[in-house]
Design a protein around this nucleic acid. Sequence first.
DNA 1: ATGGCGACATAAACTGGGCTTATGACTCAG
DNA 2: CTGAGTCATAAGCCCAGTTTATGTCGCCAT
Lengths: 307, 307
Amino acid sequence: MTQSAEGQFRAGSLAHRVPDLGALELLLAVARLGSLGGAARELGITQPAASSRIRSMERQLGVALVDRSPRGSRLTDAGALVTDWARRVVEAAEAFDAGAQALRDRRDSRLRVAASMTIAEYLLPGWLLALRAQRPDTAVSLLAGNSAAVAERLLADEADLGFVEGVSVPTGLDSVVIAHDNLIVVTAPGHVWARRRRPLAGAELAVTPLILREKGSGTRQVLDAALGGLARPLIELSSTTAVKAAAVSGAGPAVLSELAVGEELSMRRLVSVPLADVSLARDLRAVWPTGHRPVGPARDLLSLTRA
Amino acid sequence: MTQSAEGQFRAGSLAHRVPDLGALELLLAVARLGSLGGAARELGITQPAASSRIRSMERQLGVALVDRSPRGSRLTDAGALVTDWARRVVEAAEAFDAGAQALRDRRDSRLRVAASMTIAEYLLPGWLLALRAQRPDTAVSLLAGNSAAVAERLLADEADLGFVEGVSVPTGLDSVVIAHDNLIVVTAPGHVWARRRRPLAGAELAVTPLILREKGSGTRQVLDAALGGLARPLIELSSTTAVKAAAVSGAGPAVLSELAVGEELSMRRLVSVPLADVSLARDLRAVWPTGHRPVGPARDLLSLTRA
DNA sequence: ATGGCGACATAAACTGGGCTTATGACTCAG
DNA sequence: CTGAGTCATAAGCCCAGTTTATGTCGCCAT
């Protein structure tokens, strides 16, 4: 057992075991530049600060990350691995930052975006990062709501560009399909369906109790339509997150947007069950007031979102 | 060449604009429990500390996140969105933590894993999280290296279970295929190939200059084999990260493991180009010394990795 | 009503981690 | 042997986050 300042065996929370974002950024800079001092310069701190911070990160993790020499610093093998993992944390933080800035800049923004929850949650941060890379000085504001709210904002000229999911386009708006969101059936890896070889038939899906969002939600509507209103709930939950958690825990099969489960699939916390004769696709669309084709920053963003 | 389009955008780096992990964890707890005090209790801090921390996070982001009332606290609409983004940062940090702990526990660990870089980087942290959820007291150690190094460790009884990618299984080891890693052709969304409707033929791929890993790397070997040694490099880079960055920046088409680009695909920073007549698949295998079928913790982990 | 309870806010003092400046040790190139 | 790189060490400062102690508000049971 470790010596540790806190006398008890309290599992210090994540923040105590994971270096803070500044340290992870510093590590990435060291990896890229091959020098503590260089990394320090890039981040606008002094060399001793960088040295000390890397050292305390190594102490915290219990692993040597960097080989120092009078000619520079290189990552150790473990350091390279840690850096790769750190990069993912930093990327998630960059997406957070891009989104958060859009939520803030309500006033003076040059591009006002209104988006449905699913799009705002999963896609928009990435788009904003891409937009920032391309047009660094575009201030974006974001308002998230359902399709009706998006339409309302656009028609009241309180937004320049909207994004909605679902089958119908609100009246008064022009639109273009920018992507297709497939709902997929997922289970925990241990579930029977995870070992199926034959694709699942719609009829079979319709008679199986599923973990679902509540009636009225976008995904539920698509599912009910595809099955003829017959989806049978094993349990109904009010957020995508809760559905995911239930599915991961093995409670049963769930139907979710593939946007929501990308990570879980690639890490095998969930497994996708192929479908045979039903298509659970819905369009994701960019929308704007009829006749007012997007120009300027709105056009920049729109062109980013289309393949 | 410098890779990475990073967000040095304003003087304050990411760490100054994004709340630290402790604050994000706290926000998730508030969202789940509906109470500042409750969240504070769960994290082992006092209620005023939680109150002050949420407040300073709101000040930092410039957005109200929670509606306080004498009967509890609920997220605002913006708060719900921020919480979803925060969850992804925290999940990345959890993966980081799981991996880092495995790197540390070299000595007293009950399960010693040796894995190839790609697997250690992209899949193992998720497996370790799943294993921790299922068997919380299993201490795991991790050693990353190429196939030969993994085999060496296993045969020297310095590891209990190994993971390798590639076509051949090192001699002296038994193995089971746990997944298939597909190499895919990706381009920036603006590239001509992103708008192709017909799948790409192998012959076409073979005559097009590509962004590639250096000769000798695992992915390059698979690609060269599939094309008959003909892959034509536009530029050769020494890390998956650098290849990704070049592809995202629009330098040209790249060939990468789908494990490496899951996030970029779902956020449309990259687009996958369908292939017609070539299969760029390679097996991911769990391996162990011939005859020594995994038991105990090794068996637990192995069963997690198979669908 | 009234007193109790739960939830959040405010205030003041303490603590520690991270920062800076200043300096030293080491290596390599001229 | 000197100058320009690198990193490490030491001493002091500062602020963010913490705790303890107390105040305010709304609900509820008596």
